Computed example of a mutant assay.
Amino acid sequence: MKSQRPTLPRRRAVLQLTLGATVLGLSGCGFALRKAPTFAFDTVRIQGMEGTQVSRELRDALLANGLRVLTSTTPAVPGAAATPAALAPVAQAILTVLVDQRERVVVGQTAAGQVRELQLRTRFVFRLRTPTDKILIDDVELLLERDISFNETQVLAKDAEEQMLYRDMRSDIVQQVVRRLAAVKAL
């Protein structure tokens, strides 16, 4: 009696057909991988609280996405006369950082008053405008919160965990800001 087992080329054809149907199904539902952001401007100036960790990471992310980023420490235009107007290169958009703060709040205690739970918060407020003061993005507040348990016998480990959570929140805020800047379609 002959076995009903499909041959290798036939199995391969069935697998290719199944994979092709899956890919077509995913493309039909609107699924697409996230692409690199495109911006309506080529040059952006970061002002306000530009020395904070979030602002520095945001500057690096914008540079990595192909934008020219200017700050108060950006050197004067090469070959320009030494006038105050020539000292600051002109940006197409101005990102003003209004608030960049980290908070650590006690949210749980034992009956003896010992801390058992903390809440870590990162608040970032910014706006985007043109040099002619046309508002592109009005004041936006991004607030991220993370809960963390606390044990005084594990202070070093909890400190490392806290720093990791702050780093994660900082990266999340940077990605949110980059996506919002990419959503601006025209100056």
Rank of each mutant, 00 (worst) to 15 (best):
P89K: 04
V54S: 10
P75V: 12
K158G: 00
L181S: 02
T96L: 10
G108S: 11
V106M: 01
V178M: 03
A186Q: 05
D139S: 06
V140S: 01
V54H: 05
A91W: 04
S171W: 00
A93G: 08
D147H: 02
L19G: 14
K158W: 00
S149T: 12
A93N: 07
V140H: 01
L67P: 07
A64D: 14
V90T: 13
R146T: 09
D172G: 00
V99Q: 08
A112S: 07
T73G: 04
E152M: 07
S55A: 15
E141W: 01
V125H: 00
Q53R: 10
Q92I: 06
E161C: 05
I137P: 02
R56T: 15
Q154K: 12
L33S: 15
Q163F: 10
D139G: 01
D100C: 00
L17D: 09
L187D: 06
E57A: 15
R123Q: 01
I148G: 01
Q4P: 08
R129P: 00
T132W: 04
P131N: 03
R45L: 11
Q176K: 14
Q47G: 11
P6L: 14
L120C: 06
A160M: 11
V44C: 11
R12P: 04
A86S: 13
D147M: 01
D100K: 01
V44N: 06
S72Q: 14
L67S: 06
T96I: 05
G66M: 13
V140C: 00
V125G: 00
V174Y: 03
G20F: 08
S72A: 15
A85S: 08
V178P: 03
T71M: 03
P37H: 05
V54Q: 08
S149Y: 07
R129H: 02
T83G: 10
I137K: 02
Y166I: 05
Q16H: 12
V90N: 08
L26Q: 12
Q175L: 08
R45V: 06
A36R: 12
L187Q: 12
R104L: 09
S72G: 15
L15Y: 11
A111I: 05
R146K: 13
R127Q: 13
V115E: 01
R170S: 12
P131M: 03
Q119N: 08
T7N: 09
L128Y: 02
T22M: 13
G30Q: 12
V174N: 03
L62E: 13
V77W: 07
A160L: 14
V184P: 03
V106D: 00
P37G: 06
A32I: 09
T96A: 09
R59C: 09
R167D: 14
A88E: 15
V178D: 04
V23W: 10
R104G: 00
F126K: 00
Q176H: 08
V69R: 11
A112Y: 05
L144C: 01
K158T: 02
A36M: 09
G28F: 11
T71I: 05
L95K: 07
I94W: 02
R10I: 11
G28Y: 10
R12N: 10
L144P: 02
G108M: 02
M164P: 01
E50N: 04
R68I: 15
G20T: 11
T96N: 09
T130F: 02
R11G: 09
A61P: 15
T38F: 10
L143H: 04
A157K: 08
